[in-house]
Design a protein around this nucleic acid. Structure first.
Lengths: 201, 201
DNA sequence: GCCGTCACTTGACACTGCGTCAAGTGACGG
DNA sequence: CCGTCACTTGACGCAGTGTCAAGTGACGGC
């Protein structure tokens, strides 16, 4: 699927996607993207105002191609706090590799570029809301472990499940996807999920 | 203390330290360091070959000024696995702010500079060894929770206690130091420390 | 007192990657 | 046949790092 992009914009996004998905690749420059797409560097600017805008469009495009929302939605739907969280980690653990390179580039650019910083922050906000949803669900099911408020749990969950944590473990520490899912699930459960009592009521 | 550095090298390191310790500051350029030290940009190159070397020297200098090793050593000495870990998190939670900015700059530079990448990796290796020490201590005291090997626990601990996680929580999520220590201690304990059995043996 | 040394200065330049600009070129449609 | 429009080539400006060359001035040895 998606082997014959119709317009140049999509051609560029596809090219960029290929480059950024290569793990541990050298920094991707606009000239690389252009070459990969078979066009001139300047032609990229006919479709994207700046590197930041391209990265932003790219991460949305990739989310779309890999149907992130649908995957998360169907995995989580109809499950209580703890089980939804477990299922999310499974999906997420397989998904991050698609956007890791782009996220890295965006974060790097955000260091010096205001627009990239804004895009990055918006992205982080969205992810934190997702995490807050899990914390809320846990609390509503009375499964949130003692010591946490919804917000503090959301913050730490957001950090533990962040792309950066995934990258550190999977790329730097060479964890497999299965290993990531198994260990992260265990860590998150032990940290945030109240152990079921033997004697209910 | 340290108000009258003798040589220019120390003068530069002190100036850089001041700049990098300012939280959320704009990216620190060599010209900023030079100005802060009251010398020309070129004079910096008389003492440090490159930005990467300066950052590396700086992080060592800061560790030294704040006696990181001593602090960790005295906090941890003579305590078993779980208690040593708790004490380490307390020290670490107060220490990271001194090196956060430098670490951020090093990591950023590592994206394009091989020397910075090497320095960063070496630093990460060292920290992971420290974490592995805690995992080993837990295992030796039979306090390591089920599901972990020493190495997998070390990896995840390394990630949870990383500067990056600290920065996300303290800077982006506005956690206080006390909040960081409290919540991180809880998360780490629940994740890695085997709960004491009511009926031993 | 004079001289050499050495740390530092000023000012220039190369390099990289991003972003802009101007002058083409060539295919396609009315 | 002509205009339009997407794209090309080639140039330039900008920022920050790193290099180079030609000073300058203080300090110590003789």
């Amino acid at each position: 699927m998606s082997s014959s992009p119709r317009d140049t914009r999509t051609l560029i996004l596809e090219a960029a996607r290929r480059l950024f998905e290569r793990p541990g690749a050298d920094p991707v420059r606009l000239v690389d993207v252009a070459r990969e797409a078979g066009i001139s560097r300047q032609a990229v600017y006919l479709h994207f105002d700046s590197r930041a805008r391209l990265l932003l469009a790219l991460v949305r495009y990739v989310d779309d191609v890999h149907t992130l929302e649908t995957q998360v939605g169907t995995a989580v739907a109809g499950h209580g706090g703890a089980e939804a969280l477990r299922r999310f980690i499974r999906v997420w653990g397989g998904y991050v590799r698609h956007i890791d390179g782009i996220a890295y580039a965006m974060h790097h650019l955000a260091h010096t570029d205001a627009e990239a910083a804004a895009a990055w922050n918006e992205r982080m906000q969205t992810f934190r809301k997702l995490c807050r949803g899990f914390a809320t669900a846990l609390e509503e099911d009375e499964q949130l472990a003692v010591g946490w408020t919804v917000d503090s749990a959301a913050d730490l969950l957001w950090s533990m499940l962040s792309i950066r944590t995934w990258r550190e473990l999977v790329h730097e520490r060479r964890w497999s996807k299965a290993r990531y899912v198994e260990h992260m699930t265990r860590a998150v459960e032990r940290t945030f999920v109240r152990p079921p009592r033997k004697d209910p009521s």
